[in-house]
Design a protein around this nucleic acid. Sequence first.
DNA 1: CTTCAGACCTGGTGGC
DNA 2: TGCCACCAGGTCTGAA
Length: 283
Amino acid sequence: MPELPEVETVRSGLAPVMEGRVIASVQVRRPDLRWPLPPDLVQVLTGARVTALRRRSKYILADLDRGASMLLHLGMSGRLLIEARPTADYHRDPAILPRHDHVQWQMQDGATITFNDARRFGMVDLIAEGAEPAHPLLRHLGPEPLGADFHAEALAAALKERRAPIKAMLLDQRIVAGLGNIYVSEALHRAGIDPRRAAGRIGASRLAALVGHIRDVLTEAIAAGGSSLRDHRQTTGELGYFQHAFRVYDREGAACPTPGCAGVIRRIVQSGRSSYYCPVCQR
DNA sequence: CTTCAGACCTGGTGGC
DNA sequence: TGCCACCAGGTCTGAA
């Protein structure tokens, strides 16, 4: 899935065909995603103009001229495929099975957008005008890691007295919203912090450095078009390149890339999920 | 409140 | 080749 950089890549790929354009029709093939699709989805979207396409954490929001917004989450395996126009030069990846096409949007200018999600952990919802802050999925989200509200003092306050491992805390979307399993491992390696370390026992200066590394790794990944891992592709079908820049994620047994470090990357399981780290330079 | 295991669902991979 | 265990980018729910 897509973590923040992948979702941002999808959002920016979607913007040219959705922003400012009218949704001509919507087809629902399978309404039982993570949560059932709202029954009035087709009715609310049909004929609406998308005024803005935004991202909040790993969610994409499409604001409509009639006030409501459409909320989208890709889960683990969700993708948005864009066919700009029905042209012969659109090659759909044969590995993306049409039976997992759940929702399709036809834009008035001819573009077709398809939500495909094999595991169906993704979701589509509607948010009434003004109801965004109270939406159950958005209400508890912490600060955007690339925004002004995410800084060393805020992170220190959120982690104070917390005994859970820093890895788990950074995956908690209430602490900071948008990181996932890959980028947490990458940021902790850059910061030289052991993923098992109790979050509340990390010094202020190390937390400040961590904030910088989180920002850097996300920014670099967005610039590279995200990571193409297993199912994820950009909306164009192009590959994102950031997976080649992973320093520890999925690199168990490899030499630690930190200059001068003789460590070997290890994989451990924390709260059911893989963590990759260097036992030598991460403390 | 905090922390963690389990649940949701399908598909790909690697071992035997 | 076939079968099976295990793994996967998320995050909600409920138990301890």
